[in-house]
């Protein structure tokens, strides 16, 4: 018998604190699989955020640094500039990256900092109990939009991938999802491309991953995967945002 699937070496054996069915776990595993495949476990430094993934440093079997809320891109900038040959990534939720930390990520991308960001968009603040995030979709109910997000008073969702793709310093921006096995395979490919471009010294790369929060969305884990497909993807279309096909040379 040969083993075709097992835990990647870049994940520790710790049980995660994530809720049942939360796809943070899938995204952790994909990053770890890419680290293993590229053979960079001793060369990689991760920066964990504030949010449900605040304890990511217990789960990745690599060097990790915790950052203040939203400040992971600033911390990663420092690490990468001091250790230019290390592979550096931030792992950030949508509250962390698109709310309190929006300035950090925009300027890191604009400066073309040569690290990679894994941006987990679950359209809500998970850790703090389900408040509206900048990425909450119109009509979506949350603790702070109990009647559904209303653009008249609460504005519109931010499409982070498309927004950052306008910046010259960003070399690779993609949006992927993990709601079925096919999309999980595509998500892994995008994460690998982002890491490879970083290793080649090209510039800033970011992979936005649509993720579920069954607990705060109020759906079962399998219903939540369907909600990603039916409700999130129409607002957050998947695909490579930069470079566009016609720009590749």
């Amino acid at each position: 018998m040969i083993t075709v699937f097992e835990r990647p070496a870049a994940l520790t054996s710790a049980k995660t604190h994530y809720c049942p069915g939360c796809t943070h776990g899938i995204i952790h595993r994909l990053v770890a699989e890419v680290i293993d495949e590229l053979g960079i476990r001793e060369e990689t430094i991760g920066v964990s955020p504030v949010g449900c993934s605040v304890l990511a440093y217990n789960y990745f079997n690599i060097d990790m640094q915790e950052a203040a809320h939203g400040r992971a891109p600033a911390v990663a900038t420092g690490i990468k500039r001091v250790f230019p040959r290390k592979v550096v990534f931030t792992y950030q939720g949508d509250g962390d990256l698109a709310s309190i930390g929006i300035g950090e990520i925009v300027h890191a991308a604009a400066r073309g900092e040569k690290f990679t960001t894994i941006f987990v968009n679950n359209a809500i603040y998970g850790m703090t109990g389900g408040q509206m995030a900048p990425t909450t979709i119109l009509g979506q109910e949350s603790m702070t939009s109990p009647d559904g997000r209303n653009p008249a008073t609460q504005g519109y969702p931010i499409r982070v991938a498309e927004m950052l793709a306008t910046l010259e310093g960003a070399v690779y921006i993609a949006r992927v999802s993990v709601h079925n096995p096919q999309e999980v395979a595509r998500a892994k490919k995008a994460i690998k491309t982002a890491f490879e471009l970083q290793i080649a010294g090209k510039g800033f790369s970011l992979v936005e991953v649509l993720s579920s929060c069954p607990t705060n969305w109020g759906y079962t884990p399998t219903e939540s995967l369907k909600w990603i497909a039916d409700k999130m993807i129409p607002v957050y279309p998947l695909g490579v945002k930069k470079p566009l096909e016609e720009e590749k040379s």
């Binding site: 018998m1 040969i2 083993t3 075709v4 699937f5 097992e6 835990r7 994940l11 049980k15 995660t16 994530y18 069915g21 939360c22 796809t23 943070h24 776990g25 899938i26 595993r29 079925n180 096995p181 999980v184 395979a185």
Partner: peptide
Amino acid sequence: RMCPDVVITVR
């Protein structure tokens, strides 16, 4: 591949 908790080994 869909398990968020790395429960499953496949051979």
